[in-house]
Design a protein around this nucleic acid. Structure first.
Lengths: 226, 226
DNA sequence: TGAGGGTTGATACAGTGTATTGATGGATAC
DNA sequence: GTATCCATCAATACACTGTATCAACCCTCA
């Protein structure tokens, strides 16, 4: 044997075979690190030391990759608890926490039909735990909670990003939006808004999410056990 | 004067001067017709018979254009009514109707901080109409309704698109997803889901939206007038 | 008439998703 | 053991995106 044909180091013997799984994990890593815009097929492929076109052996389109990413994260969303209220509450909170770990989820939630196995498994868990509540209430109730969560998480993540960016250079934010807003408020056309900004409660994100969710769950509860 | 130098027809004397307004209207036309993906700076510019770079005299970036589009549509969202419940309800319904007229709105709602004049005017109208309800309830209540609307509209438009596409070739949809779903359901891992699909209520979009909204408003009402 | 300067159009660049085409290597048939 | 075929994979190519840069232009003022 020729000496320069040294054997491969044993701890990285062969690159793991490509798979949907590995592609999706790489895409999620990229999205977690640098946001959804950083997920391009070229970058995902580079992450896996592979040509971009290789991915098309496993994916039909980029949209499919995004769908798979969402479904993969749904594995982290597993509602638990006893009784309809606990279950819906934990559905909401685990979804929200997943979006905190993967902010890009906020951009994707609700934007595509979700029929992946993990998503369906989560849905099954919710429905199964709803006890013997009438289906005529269960269906709109779950649907309403899902809608609320999608919107609330989206707003929260959007605000979080804006704060992060304006925190990074608060100076710039004030220079850009400050005068404009001051001018608008100075017109006196927004007295109620001004009052809220001035005297309104300053809830943190946890409280805001929870309060709105409680409104909704209370309203549902009134239909279940009047 | 040379005969072939015919004067411009008087009903189209000079191209209207370019303006943010005209740019935004052109972008909205494009988005209404062919979806948000059809809104590229090049196409918007072409719509206005102008080079792409002209737009940068009026816009700093494409994101700004999208923000302006959203704010422009907010001019159509003007809640009316007496009392907090009517106002919140009309806020929700007018928003939803605007999204029906401009489906792309569902992709943008909640995705960016909204500080445009039309958006603020709408917010002012809502707050002003909330009467003398305690601010500690008003703020989370409005916020919760906004969140619900964002999520519900997003889900509804997503489903509408899926139906439209699968309606255009239902054959293809069944070929693609049918066997996969049947296989999943055949495993027996989703009995509750299967029950819902089989026995659950089939609400139309109006009812679904309205029912969830009523849950939420009921819950809010319980805090306002217990 | 000439010069200066803001306005506008053209070109250019880096990046995207994806179609097509050419190479390559391993299994199968003789 | 050789030849053939086919599946796999890499490279190239295309049309398109947002945006930076730069050259031409026209309008205003001296």
């Amino acid at each position: 044997m020729l000496v320069w044909e040294r054997p491969e180091p044993p701890d990285r013997p062969v690159p793991a075979p490509l798979s949907r799984e590995r592609i999706v994990q790489a895409a999620i890593r990229l999205a977690d690190a640098d946001g959804l815009d950083a997920v391009s097929l070229r970058k995902v492929a580079a992450e896996l030391d592979v040509g971009p076109m290789r991915l098309y052996g496993y994916l039909a389109t980029k949209e499919e990759l995004l769908d798979l990413m969402v479904d993969a994260v749904h594995a982290e969303i597993r509602p638990t608890g006893d009784g309809w209220r606990e279950v819906l509450l934990s559905l909401a909170e685990t979804t929200r926490r997943a979006a905190h770990r993967h902010e890009w989820l906020a951009d994707l939630l609700g934007g595509r039909p979700q029929l992946g196995p993990n998503t369906l498994t989560g849905g099954e868990a919710v429905l199964a735990a709803m006890g013997d509540v009438d289906l005529d209430v269960v269906v709109p109730a779950v649907s309403a909670v899902a809608a609320y969560v999608i919107g609330a998480v989206r707003r929260e993540i959007t605000e979080r990003r804006a704060e992060r960016e304006s925190g990074m250079d608060q100076r710039q934010w004030q220079v850009t939006h400050g005068p404009y807003l001051l001018r608008l408020f100075a017109t006196g056309r927004f007295p109620a808004l001004a009052a809220v900004v001035h005297d309104g409660p300053h809830l943190d994100a946890d409280q805001t999410f929870r309060t709105g969710l409680d409104f909704l769950l209370d309203g549902i509860g009134a239909r279940i056990s009047p």
